[in-house]
Nucleic acid binder design. Sequence first.
DNA 1: TGCCCAATA
DNA 2: GCCATATTGGGCA
Length: 604
Amino acid sequence: MPSGADAHHGHDTLKYHLLGPSLTKAGQDAVDQHRVSDIIYHASRGSKFFSNEEAKDKTLTDKISHILATKLLLERRDLRPDLRRADDYIAELELSRDLSQVVVHIDCDAFYAAVEELDRPELKEVPMAVGKGVLTTCNYHARKFGCRSGMASFVAMRLCPQLVCVPMNPAKYSAKAEEVRAVLAEYDPRFESASCDEAYLNLTQYCREHHVGAEEAVQQLRDQVHEKTRITVSAGIAANAKLAKICSNKNKPNGQFSLARDRQPIMEFMKTLPTRKVNGVGRVFERELDAIGIKTCGDIYEYRAYLAQLFGQKAFQFLMQCYLGLGRTSIQPAEDYERKSVGTETTFKEMKSPDALRMKLREIADELEDDLKRTGFKARTLCVKVKLHTYEVYTRQSSPPFAVHKADDLYKYSLPILEKLMKKLPDMKLRLMGLRATHLVSAKKPGIDFFGRPTGSSSAATKNKDSEGDWEVWPEAEFEEAVRQERNNEMNELEKLSQEYEKQQPQPEAQWTCPICILPQPPNDTTFNSHIDFCLSRQTIKEAVQSTTPFTNTPLQPSSTRPTPSTAQKKGKRGRPRNEPPTLDEKTREKRRAFFTLPTNPTP
DNA sequence: TGCCCAATA
DNA sequence: GCCATATTGGGCA
C-alpha cells in the first residue's frame, strides 16, 4: 500500500506499481503481497521494462509532489466558494439519485481458464494460466501464489514454478461467451455486454413480471448459466451499474452480493470502500488520492473543496458520485454505442532498419484494412504509434485528403508519419508499431446527415448486425447524438463562463507567499512555478508539510469579493427527462494534469 | 481545434 | 523476458 506523503521513500511505490493493474481482482486477499512484490521486483530488475517503470514512477512521484504543493497553497486561501460549489453539486446529485432500478453485474469467474478447464478437467487441480508472454487470466490455484492477469509469465513462473500455461483460444471463448449471453437474454433482452466475460442487466422488469426478488432471480440465473454452460459466474445486485460492478467482486468466485437499494446502506457501503475498487480508479489515481489523504470513498467528502482544483472538474464530479455511490442506471446493448476508432498494433523483436520498419508498417496497413472492412469504416485520420526499445511511446497522426480504407492508401498516408518519426529519432529501435484509424466515416452510407455532420460518426450505431434493423435504430441514435451535442455545448458554455469569471477576479495581492519557504514572492506564474520547483527540490514534501502551519484556511481576501459562479449547479440536466445522474459517467475518468492551473494569485 | 500523451478497463 | 484494443480527458499551440 502506498501510504501518504512518505510513499516515495525507497522503492515502495515502484514495487506497489509493479504488482500490476489487477490488484483488486478476487483471489488475492490471502496472498502476502509484500513477498509477491519483492519477487516481481527482483525478477524484473535490470530489464528495460523495469527502467521504464522506474522512470514512470519517478514522474508520478513528482506529479504528486506538485499536487501536494498545490494543496498547501489552497489551504492558505479562502475555500468557502469551492466548498459551497461542492455542496451544491452534492445536493443536486442527491436529487437525481435513482433507486428504482435493479441493476445486476455478471462476471464470469476466471473465464478463459474456466473454459480451458472444461476441455481438460485435469487442469482444474493445478495452478494454471492462459496466455503466452503475459497471462490473460489464471485459475484460483494460481492466484494463491500471487499470479494475476496482466502479469508477465516469466514472473508468474517465478512465483509459482509449477504453473501450467496454456495458449489462448479466442474462438473457443467467444463461443462459450455466446452461450452465456443466451441465458442472460432470457432475463433482460437488452442487457449490456461490458466485455467478453462481463455484462450488465436491468432486472427491474423481470422481477416485477415474475414476482420474484432480485436475489432469488439472480440465484436462478446463475444456476441456469451453470447448468447450460458449466461456467460459474458471480453477480452483484445494486441500484446502479457502478455499485453492481463492485458488488460482483464481493463474493467471487461463484457467489453473489446484493446491496440494498436505499440511500443509507449505500452511503455506509461507500464509506469504507477503498477508492481503487471503483471502476475508473487505477494505480495512478489511487496513489494521487492517497497522497492527499483519501483512501476510501468516504474520505472524499472531507476534501471536497479541493478536488476540482487539484484534479479537474471531471474528476471532481466523478469523485462526488463515488462518495454518494451514484452511477448509471440505464443499461443498453453495446451496439447502441458508436465506435470511435479502429486500430491494430504488434510487438516484435527490436528492429531499426528503415526498410524493415517500412515493411512492418505495410503489414500493419494490411491488417488494418481487414479490420476496417470488417467493421465497415473509412478513416479520415491515421495515427501511427511506435514504442522504442526503451518502452517510450510516441504517437503521430495525420489526415489524408480523403477518407481511406484500402491498405495501399493506409500505407501511403501513414508512411510519411513514420518517416518523420525516423528523422526525428535517428536510428530509432522499435519493439512495437501500431496504426489506428479515427474520425471514422461509415463506408456504407457516406454523405452528410441532416444535422450537417458527416455520417459515420453517428451511423456507427448500426455497425454490428448490419443485415437487418438498421433503419429502426437510426432516429434514436440521432437523437442520442443530438442530446450529447447539446450537452457538450452547454458544458463549453459553462466552461467559458467560469474561465471569464476567473479572469475577472480581483487581483488584490501584488505578491504571493510560498507555502514552503514562507517567503514573499514576485507575482507572475513563471516565477511561481520555478520557485516552487526550486523549493521542492531543496526540501521533501514531507518536510514541507511538517514545516507549514496546518490547515488554518485563513481567508486571504474577503469572500465577498469572490462571487460564486454556479457552474456546478447548472451543469447536468436542465429539465431533460433522464433517469440517471447528470454526467453519465461510469466512464468518466478522473484526471490529473493538476500542476499549477489553479487560479493562482496574480498575473497583472 | 487538432495533436499528443497518459490512464484505464 | 512484460499484450492488444478502445475510450477518455487534459495540456498545449
